[in-house]
């Protein structure tokens, strides 16, 4: 499993789900902060006409955190003011680089993806019910 895919699952997770799953790991090695959870801004870029020149839409609040765990640097950036979720994600990123913990972190990432898939499936199901078929009326003189 690619590092980017794991980081995506961590970033898109719901905070309580991630913390609960990380809690299931049991004892993890001690870590030190390379950077404590810190709030900041990411300027969101978009494209004119969806695909033309880039422009700045506005900023998004984000949290970042970096840890050192057994010599492995774990990093995380997540949207919102989410210090606990961000720390959990940085720890998971560091642990994923450790052979002993990698299978467990991959399992957690799969759980998070499945959680997300369930939520999205529910959303799609509700949205699809609002799909409409507009039809234009055929005028009398055209209908022969």
């Amino acid at each position: 499993m690619e590092r980017q895919r794991i980081m995506r699952a961590l970033a898109l997770s719901r905070e309580n789900t991630l913390i609960e799953l990380m809690g299931s790991l049991g004892d993890i090695p001690p870590f030190e902060y390379l950077r404590r959870p810190q709030k900041g801004l990411i300027m969101v870029k978009a494209r004119a006409d969806a695909k033309n020149q880039a422009f700045n839409l506005g900023e998004a609040l984000a949290t970042r955190c970096s840890v050192n765990l057994n010599g492995k640097a774990g990093h995380a950036y997540v949207l919102g003011d989410e210090p606990e979720k961000c720390l959990a994600a940085a720890l998971a990123d560091a642990l994923a680089q450790d052979e002993r913990f990698r299978p467990e972190i991959e399992r957690i990432a799969l759980c998070l993806e499945a959680d997300m898939a369930r939520a999205r499936a529910l959303e799609v199901q509700k949205t699809q019910k609002t799909k409409v078929d507009f039809f234009t009326l055929v005028r009398g003189e055209d209908a022969d």
Binding site: L41, R47, L57, A60, Y77
Partner: peptide, 21 residues
């Protein structure tokens, strides 16, 4: 917003892959 540090610029968002509601 004025009191917060800027981490940087995002990649341009891809509205074509939006999960449209």
């Amino acid at each position: 917003r004025a009191s917060l540090k800027r981490f940087g610029y995002s990649e341009p968002i891809e509205t074509a892959s939006m999960r449209a509601r």
